[in-house]
Design a protein around this nucleic acid. Structure first.
Lengths: 350, 350
DNA sequence: CTGAAAGCGCTTACAG
DNA sequence: CTGAAAGCGCTTACAG
């Protein structure tokens, strides 16, 4: 191992050509003719020396660092963030881009902190992704327009930056449709009341599904906190409200998997078996929960990986000035939330 | 907003000084005298123009990119990875370093893939972190020694790279000690048999704790798969083995939180209340589970955030050539696994 | 088909 | 106390 890093000059010397030629050969520069013999001399010299171009130097010269910056809001509190990062990273690798990450602490004002954007701009990133799962809208700082940018999980208030969100509404509607097709008619919704896009989208989807099936969309809706405890309470209220079995819901759609976890407990305490006596579905496909419940929970998955990948792919298109760049447009792109069927749905007991 | 990025030359012109002076003033270069009047002229000019030094150019010149690379193995499958990243990122910010991330797919050979290391080297990172949670030992590629490196969750077989691991053994022993002090004597271990550091460490810790209390370390150990289903089976076997209540374990220490989830279900089916009839403890403090169970699960936390932060802090020390760098030494540093007490431990029923 | 030279935006001996 | 100049390692018109 040579102690000093080998540079393009070393390769040129080794191959007996100029650095210009080395650069052209190694980069396959278009509109450049080099004899095959020279080409292979250069390639062999580079290989022999173990030459790897310095991306910093190249970036400085080409004004393109080959880096994209991902600002994640509260990666700490969202266990999903990992999959967004994974999707972004893998897509970045495909485009030969490097992904840098900065975590942003959650702020109460719905606007992105300039200092984190600036840190990336100082590094000459070619693009910036801002990922949030909490806001409807976000106000981007001026600086973010200096470079191609995309938004995950929020809409740009000014409508200038492409954004992507899960289609929670369609996801919820599709799982209601599945329950209907499985034979259920009294389908309850263990809802929650925090005013974020997810709560509204899932409620709308539930209503869409019920109405499409000709069912009453408000007869079996109960609100509770979006935790296991809330799911327990909501399900208790739903299934044990002094109702006769003939008017009791046969399926409970829970706002999220944590609530579904509470719903399982409520069912168990009421002596109801899942899914024989009551079907339960969740939302989120949250890593350890959905697969660890018994029976395993049927739920609706959030396309985190896909959103991360979409963000980088869109950025890459914008960076390369391709047409897809504008195709995104100001309205948020919606990504489907697929149903993950496991074992918690069955036809209603007759 | 000026369309062209403002450079040090613009600041020099605006302030009426040379770029040398601008650089000295803005970097507070030691052994350099500049009149206060000039200093403030420069600073004002920089502020007025909104000047931010190009880190790429600075990196090229100083041979220090200010970037550290984190290679995470299978971030996808380990929900914990997020906290490692968070710890690394926040510590990096403290050192004015930028964190870049590459995901590495899990390989069967216990050695790090060179191409991912090379990708970072090409970017002139100042240091590399390789994070794994699966291996005992890892064989690092030659190239990784070109730059300061640290290992998370694995030991360097060659003993050259500092590494950090959770002290699973001490963590397990401490929670057994807690159960003993709470009055338990028949403490079972729902173990698992995969041969990784975590299984061995937790088993040893369990034995340490039992022996320290003068109890039989093998009377109540059952092995099962490390999932909820395994925890259910193990707990069933442990609590319902045709034993009389007087010889039944009063506490079950589960290999991980997922198994604890199954243990809860087993207890419920046996009509045993947690923690009145049986105390249950887990390990991992896995995000949605531990807090979502009822009662909330007492468990042992893995120091993911701390390992990420330690890695960057150690790297920073090595980069700056400080003494702490060598203090780490070849033996893995062990980080404590703190007990997180929630509601699943109580004194044994008399 | 190949190369000399300028320049990306900084920092840093060195000179004055 | 301040500045002219070299150079980090590349790419890219441009010339031959």
């Amino acid at each position: 191992m040579p102690r000093k890093q080998v540079g393009i000059r070393d390769v040129a010397a080794e191959a007996g050509v100029s650095v210009t030629t080395v650069s052209h050969v190694l980069n396959d520069t278009p509109h450049t003719r080099t004899s095959d013999e020279t080409k292979s001399r250069v390639r062999e010299a580079a290989a022999r020396l173990g030459y790897h171009p310095n991306r910093l130097a190249r970036g400085l010269r080409t004004q393109a660092s080959g880096m994209v910056g991902l600002i994640t809001e509260e990666i700490a509190t969202t266990p999903h963030a990992g999959r967004i990062i994974l999707g972004a990273q893998e897509e970045a690798s495909r485009h030969n881009l490097t992904l840098a990450i900065i975590n942003s602490t959650l702020r109460h004002e719905p606007d992105v902190e300039p200092s984190e954007v600036q840190a990336f701009l100082d590094r000459q990133v070619d693009g910036i992704i801002y990922a949030t799962v909490y806001h409807d809208e976000v106000i981007l700082p001026e600086q973010m327009h200096a470079v191609p940018s995309v938004l995950i999980g929020a809409r740009d208030r000014d409508g200038e930056v492409p954004s992507i969100m899960p289609d929670e509404r369609a996801g919820a509607a599709s799982v209601i449709d599945l329950l209907v097709r499985t034979g259920h008619r009294r389908i309850a919704f263990a809802a929650t009341s925090v005013d974020v896009p997810a709560t509204r989208g899932r409620l709308r989807g539930y209503r869409d599904g019920m109405i499409a099936a000709g069912l009453d969309p408000s007869a079996h809706v109960v609100e509770a906190v979006s935790e296991a405890a809330g799911g327990y309470e909501a399900t208790m209220a739903l299934l044990d409200h002094g109702r006769s079995p003939s008017e009791r819901p046969t399926a409970v759609f829970c706002y999220n998997d944590r609530m579904a976890m509470g719903a399982y407990r409520a069912a168990a305490e009421l002596g109801l078996s899942v899914p024989a006596d009551v079907s339960i579905v969740g939302f989120d496909d949250q890593a350890p929960i959905a697969g660890s419940l018994f029976p395993a929970l049927s739920t609706v998955a959030l396309p985190h990986y896909e959103m991360g990948a979409w963000a980088v792919a869109t950025l890459a298109a914008m960076i390369e000035g391709r047409d897809e760049a504008d195709a995104a447009g100001p309205a948020p792109t919606l990504l489907p939330c697929p149903i993950v069927e496991r074992g918690s749905i069955a036809g209603p007991a007759r």
